[in-house]
């Protein structure tokens, strides 16, 4: 007779992989993150500071570099809010209404992702350039788009158009229309429904879309390079200025400006994490529903 308790042979949950597999998987991810993310970022900052803080601050405080930083920030400040509005409108139309050509519209929204930015820039030059369809009219009215500020904003908006809509569409699809309908039966106007029901429900997806859109708007190179004409101090955004400095072997200045650009992106990511951390309770409460 044996009344000895059987030892527990499998203390881990059934979904947990064997120890070796876990270590290999985690190790691979850590190595990839280190090589692909941290090493390049570290290299940029190290190169920027190679000749000390003074040299790199001098590199980014030349009038041209300062103009580039200012231009990039202004372009993002115009393009991102506009694309947020267009993105909300597109996602709203696609998820809350049924109409003919919906699938086509979704494909169209993705177009900037599939078209090379250089092609987008060239297309804008063809549309608005001196010998173009609208060119004569624009010259007659003394409006400059190509090789000028409006062109840069247009190119940036084209390239970053899908980010907000792409974030919002799946969230709004999953949430359906019932809450909006409920608000309507309670007597709320369409605008009030949007402000008090739709917008609060999509705010996190919207924030994430806006951050991605912003990062890309500040970093866009190809389309802006074509349409801006790269006029130093006038139409050079940060990425274009970085390339010019690098080609002129001014590597400290180039990497210092690159570090600023990377920092701007890091700050937006940090802000997002901070917000998520502050509202963790509320987030958990609303997501479980």
């Amino acid at each position: 007779m044996s009344d000895v308790a059987h030892p527990v042979t499998r203390p881990t949950p059934v979904t947990t992989e064997p120890r070796l597999a876990r270590h290999i998987l985690i190790g691979t991810v850590v190595a990839l993150v280190a090589v692909l993310l941290f090493a390049p970022l570290f290299a940029v900052f190290a190169e920027a500071l190679r000749q000390g803080w003074a040299a790199s601050i001098e590199g980014i405080s030349s009038p041209d570099a300062r103009a580039a930083i200012r231009l990039t920030l202004i372009v993002a400040a115009i393009a991102v809010p506009l694309n947020a509005v267009f993105g909300i409108a597109a996602a709203w139309a696609i998820t809350k209404f049924d109409f003919r050509g919906k699938a086509f519209l979704i494909t169209l929204i993705d177009l900037p992702f599939s078209v090379s930015p250089v092609v987008a820039g060239l297309a804008l030059v063809l549309l608005f350039g001196a010998n173009s369809w609208f060119g004569a009219w624009l010259i007659a009215h003394d409006l400059k788009i190509v090789f000028a500020f409006p062109g840069i904003v247009l190119a940036t908006m084209f390239v970053t158009f899908p980010f907000v809509a792409r974030e919002l569409i799946p969230v709004m699809m999953e949430q359906g229309r019932a809450e909006e309908e409920a608000a309507l039966t309670l007597g709320a106007s369409g605008w009030r429904v949007f402000l008090t029901v739709t917008l609060p429900n999509i705010r996190w997806a919207l924030l994430y879309g806006v951050l991605l859109c912003n990062a890309r708007a500040m970093g866009e190179f190809g389309a802006v390079a074509v349409i801006s004409g790269k006029i130093r101090g006038e139409t050079t955004t940060m990425p274009i200025m970085i390339e010019m400095l690098y080609n002129e072997y001014l590597s400290v200045a180039a990497f210092s400006l690159a570090a600023v650009l990377a920092l701007l992106a890091l700050v937006t990511l940090f802000l997002k994490s901070l917000l998520e951390w502050c509202y963790a309770d509320l987030l958990a409460a609303t997501r479980r529903h």
Binding site: A178, E181, G187, N201, T286
Partner: peptide
């Protein structure tokens, strides 16, 4: 319009405002 009708509506899955 739906607002003018003032019909109290209880939805199948309640559709409470989650936030």
């Amino acid at each position: 319009s739906v607002q003018e009708r003032r019909a109290g509506f209880v939805f199948q899955h309640y559709a409470l405002f989650r936030h």
